[in-house]
Structures are given as structure tokens and as C-alpha cells.
Simulated scan of single mutants.
Amino acid sequence: MSTTEADSLYDGLEKMSTEAILEGINNEDRKVAVAVGKSIPSISLLVDKITERMSAGGRLFYIGAGTSGRLGVVDASECPPTFGVPHELVVGVIAGGDGAIRKAVEFAEDDEEQAWRDLEAQGISEKDCLVGIAASGRTPYVLGGLRMARQKGLLTGCVVCNEGSVVAKACEYPVEVVVGPEFVTGSTRMKAGTAQKMTLNMLTTSVMIKLGKVRGNKMVDMQLSNHKLVDRAVKMVMAEASVNESEAKRLLDKYGSVRSAVDNKE
């Protein structure tokens, strides 16, 4: 039996007090960061390989089903506002299409051939990178997509939560984050999902830093899409360019980003 399907270390959950349930979940969640930490060498290798491809004009694609697919879509969708990159640079593809983000599409994950069709619709090419996300490490949708991508010459990686899975074996740069049994047996939206979210955050943040999308520790290319972000940008320009608030606002209005405002300070 896979680790993600193993029996919970807790039983009689329905008889527990609310506080006991929450403490149990929290106790299990504490194990996630430790498990992710053990996987840093493999995450690091994947980051470096993806950075090489993207530096040469490639893109990053995620594929997954259910929770795994949703996490890929979330991570991809957060890259443009955070780092100012085009929406098509990091793309999340979920089994069952965008409708599956909100409502599960039955059996969508069981079609081994559908992932590649979905990726072709996005214009994927041999220059690109594909990362499969599958807590179980055996999702047919993810497995089929990775196998075809590897045949086509794409760089392939994965994030799984079991050791020695078929998905890991299907790609060049696997990341295995083994978090152990879930609090509710088999509910991989919990620890496994948290581990995947943490890993994807580390992956894209590291890649974007290495691609020059961060200066110092600031998101200098972030999109100024709401009042909170504009206010943050004003403070960043004030600090980086040593100007007052009104001048920072003027520079941002003129140049449109923190990076340009600082670089073109008059």
C-alpha cells in the first residue's frame, strides 16, 4: 500500500473533541515542512534545470488532477501578478479542464492520453518544461502526459508524495515528498496537498529569483493591480530611490513598475 493510502495514526475521529481533532491535524501538519526539507536536493536540481530551459525561451507547464491540478493552476496563476511575467509563461493544466477547478470531473484523471491533448492546445513545444503533480504518484493523466513529453524532448519533473512511484520513474527530475499517512485516511488534500503547495512555491519562487525577477528581497516587477500593491510599490520606490512619497508616486505613474521607476529616477 502506498504511504498516502496508509491508515491514519488516529482513530475514532468522530468521537474526538473539536480541540483534539485540531491538535491531531496540527501535529500531522508539523511533519510536512520537515519532509519538504529532506527533498531540497531534488527540488534544487529541478529548479536549476527549469531555469536553464526558461532562460533559453522555454515555458513551464504543470499537469495534475483534483487537488494536485488545482494547486498547479494556483501556483501558475500567481506568477504574473507577483513577478510581472506573461500569463503564458507558467501554465497550470488540470484534468477535466478549467471547470474542474471548482467542481470535480469524474474519471477525468483516468485518461492517459488526454493530458498531451490538453498541452498541445496550449502550444507546448520541445523547448518547454513539464512538471507532473500527483500525490499518489500513479495518476494516469499525469503519467501519460509526462511519458509523451519526455518522448518529445521536453524537460520533465514531478512532485509526488510516495517513494518509487511510476510517475517519478517516468520523468527525469522527480521530487518525492513523503509526508506519511493523512489524519483522515487517504485524504491527500491535507498533508500531501500542503507539501505540494510548499514545493511549488519554492520551485517557482526560486526560478523567478534566478531569472532576475526579484531585486534584493523585493518583487520589483509585480503588477500594480490593486491599492494594496500600489501602496507597497510606493514604499519600495521611496526606499530604493531615496525619494519622498509624492515623487515615488510620480515615478510609478510614469514608468509603471518599481524596477523602471527606480532605474529611471531623474
Rank of each mutant, 00 (worst) to 15 (best):
1 M>Q: 08
2 S>M: 11
4 T>H: 03
5 E>M: 08
7 D>W: 00
8 S>H: 01
10 Y>G: 01
10 Y>W: 10
15 K>G: 12
18 T>Y: 07
19 E>T: 14
23 E>D: 15
28 E>C: 13
32 V>G: 10
32 V>C: 09
34 V>I: 15
34 V>M: 11
35 A>I: 02
35 A>G: 08
37 G>M: 06
43 I>Y: 03
44 S>P: 01
44 S>H: 14
50 I>H: 10
53 R>V: 07
60 L>C: 11
60 L>Y: 04
61 F>P: 02
62 Y>R: 09
62 Y>P: 08
63 I>D: 04
67 T>Q: 09
68 S>D: 07
69 G>M: 04
72 G>C: 08
79 C>H: 02
81 P>C: 05
83 F>M: 11
83 F>D: 12
88 E>D: 15
95 A>Q: 06
95 A>W: 01
96 G>H: 02
96 G>D: 06
102 R>E: 09
104 A>S: 14
106 E>Q: 12
108 A>K: 08
111 D>A: 09
121 A>E: 14
121 A>H: 03
124 I>C: 09
125 S>V: 05
128 D>Q: 09
130 L>F: 03
131 V>Y: 01
133 I>N: 08
136 S>H: 05
137 G>P: 05
143 L>N: 12
144 G>L: 06
147 R>T: 13
153 G>F: 01
155 L>E: 07
160 V>N: 11
161 C>I: 03
161 C>M: 04
161 C>R: 04
162 N>D: 13
163 E>M: 13
164 G>F: 02
168 A>D: 04
168 A>G: 15
168 A>W: 00
170 A>T: 04
173 Y>E: 14
175 V>L: 02
181 P>Y: 03
183 F>T: 04
183 F>D: 02
184 V>K: 00
185 T>V: 00
186 G>M: 02
186 G>P: 01
186 G>N: 05
187 S>V: 01
188 T>P: 03
189 R>M: 07
190 M>W: 04
195 A>W: 01
195 A>H: 02
196 Q>F: 01
196 Q>D: 05
196 Q>T: 11
196 Q>P: 03
197 K>T: 09
197 K>D: 12
198 M>S: 04
200 L>S: 12
200 L>P: 05
201 N>Y: 01
201 N>I: 03
203 L>G: 10
203 L>P: 06
206 S>D: 10
206 S>M: 13
209 I>V: 15
210 K>H: 07
213 K>S: 04
214 V>E: 06
215 R>M: 12
216 G>H: 02
218 K>E: 14
218 K>I: 12
227 H>P: 02
229 L>S: 11
229 L>R: 09
229 L>M: 14
231 D>M: 08
233 A>W: 00
238 M>I: 07
239 A>D: 15
241 A>S: 13
242 S>R: 12
242 S>V: 10
244 N>D: 15
253 D>P: 00
253 D>G: 07
254 K>N: 14
258 V>T: 14
259 R>H: 10
260 S>W: 00
261 A>L: 03
261 A>D: 05
262 V>I: 14
263 D>V: 03
